[in-house]
Design a protein around this nucleic acid. Structure first.
Length: 419
RNA sequence: GUGGCUGUAGUUCAGCUGGUUAGAAUGCCGGAUUGUGAUUCCGGAGGUCGUGGGUUCAAGCCCCAUCAGCCACCCCA
């Protein structure tokens, strides 16, 4: 066992992992593009303020999970724990308000100092979309529809449930919050220690508590829907009817709240029970206050993020690498010829490798080991005749093909093999 | 951050109540005569038993610490 361990909660993506990973991000990128979301990339680190200001100083992410450090110039920087704040910062920095509404897709690493578990890493990867500058409920529907389509394309949508809730607008939320605090204050002695803490930091979180004592108290707590104003109710109704129109199923979950302060109105989460305690696969919502908090002109936005590792685990699909052709030259003259041939075949778009060491047996073995679908054998005899022996490895059949015809003939020989 | 389980060859694991040179499978390397792989046969390399202390005549097995993985909580993707 090597004594050099990777940093806790980080993972190497070896080719098999990488392919599974790419399968998720490539599929998502393609489907997002189909929905009009173009890819952007923002820096992996930002000034700490970008996150501290937007995520709120009560959230767990900010208070204990960020990788924050001072750089050599004395600036406080933070490795991004999520990408929405970065995208909104970019929106402001680049004066993109003039192009609003804009639709962006992103994919990349995020960092959170949490205790690792399966499906929960310190460096993990997310895909996500942001739709900035559209205040209409249809924008929320569009964002959810895009996410739903991606889950469908990945073949995991059946393993998930779309949970939906509204957090209302600022007024509704403030009124409800006040009522909640007042209610729980009256039951302070019976609340769990954790929930007492939540009461000051994020009272709505108490609704989600797993503590039995808490649950009893929660049962009689004020209900959010009683505090929603007409605007909030109408907005939510529009989102729901949009989803209905698209045939996207959802279940209402009044307990679905958000740890991050900037969310309002629509909150949604595609959850699964296939990943243990890590049930959230794709989560998002509306964040109308975020850009204002960052110092930009008040601009509405909606989006979601999804964990690539979790999606990859859910889908279980591990695409295999394209099988190569291996050229097996015997003798110096053949090796020179083989080099030229690799180039010809590669130019023709055929994945080609060169078995350059050992006797013929070794080279054939190599071809087998790299899972080649065909070996091209080139020796003195073949050279003198201007041909090559093409052996298809699955059926063991060998055919003589004129050198000049190789790149045209190979795809036909492979037609029977679609590995 | 809190609590619990686990940690033996590249990989998956075995190793009896502590007792001589720690095993298997698979993988890897080499061989079974000349230009043919994946099957078969033979041979070989590879582990300071996560790491550091301690108890003991003696520790992979016991104790402590530490690191990592996993599970639950917390939180979240």
């Amino acid at each position: 066992m090597a004594d050099l361990q990777p940093v806790r909660g980080t993972h190497d993506l070896l080719p098999d992992d990488m392919r599974a990973h790419r399968h998720v991000s490539d599929t998502a990128r393609g489907t997002a593009a189909l929905h009009g979301f173009d890819e952007i990339a923002t820096p992996i680190f930002e000034f700490t303020n970008v996150f501290a200001r937007t995520l709120g100083d009560t959230s767990d992410v900010v208070t204990k999970e960020m990788y924050t450090f001072e750089d050599k110039g004395g600036d406080m920087l933070t490795l991004r724990p999520e990408n929405t704040a970065g995208v909104c910062r970019a929106f402001i920095s680049n004066g993109l308000a003039q192009h609003a509404p804009v639709k962006y897709f992103y994919s990349g690493p995020m960092f959170r100092h949490e205790r690792p578990q399966k499906g929960r890493l310190r460096q993990f990867h997310q895909i996500g979309i942001e739709l900035i500058g559209a205040a209409q409920p249809l924008a929320d529907v569009e964002a959810i529809a895009c996410g739903h389509a991606i889950l469908t394309d990945l073949g995991v949508v059946d393993k998930t449930v779309l949970e939906l809730n509204t957090l209302g607008d600022t007024d509704s939320r403030a009124a409800y919050r006040e009522a909640l605090v007042e209610y729980f204050q009256g039951h302070l002695d019976k609340l769990s220690t954790e929930s007492k803490d939540r009461l000051t930091r994020n009272p709505m979180r108490i609704l989600d508590s797993k503590d039995e004592g808490d649950r009893k108290i929660v049962a009689d707590a004020p209900i959010f829907s009683d505090y929603l104003n007409t605007e909030s109710v109408d907005f939510f109704a529009a989102v729901k009817s949009g989803l209905d129109a698209l045939g996207i199923k959802y279940t209402l979950n009044p307990r679905l709240v958000r740890g991050l302060d900037y969310y309002c109105h629509t909150a949604f989460e595609f959850t699964t029970d296939a990943l243990g305690a890590q049930s959230a696969v794709m989560a998002g919502g509306r964040y109308d206050g975020l850009i204002g908090m960052l110092g930009g002109q008040e601009t509405p936005g909606v989006g979601w993020a999804a964990g690539i590792e979790r999606l990859a685990m859910l889908s279980g699909a591990t695409p295999t690498a394209d099988r190569p052709i291996v050229i097996v030259p015997m003798g110096e003259a053949a090796e020179a010829q083989a080099l030229a041939l690799t180039r010809t075949l590669r130019n023709a778009g055929l994945r080609t490798e060169f078995a350059f060491s050992g006797n013929m047996k070794k080279r054939m073995k190599h071809a087998n080991k790299v899972n080649a679908w065909a070996a091209i054998i080139l020796g003195d005899e073949e050279l003198s005749k201007g041909v090559a022996q093409v052996k298809t490895l699955d059926d063991g059949e060998q055919k003589e093909v004129a050198m000049a015809n190789l790149s045209a003939a190979l795809p036909l020989l492979r037609a029977g093999d679609r590995g």
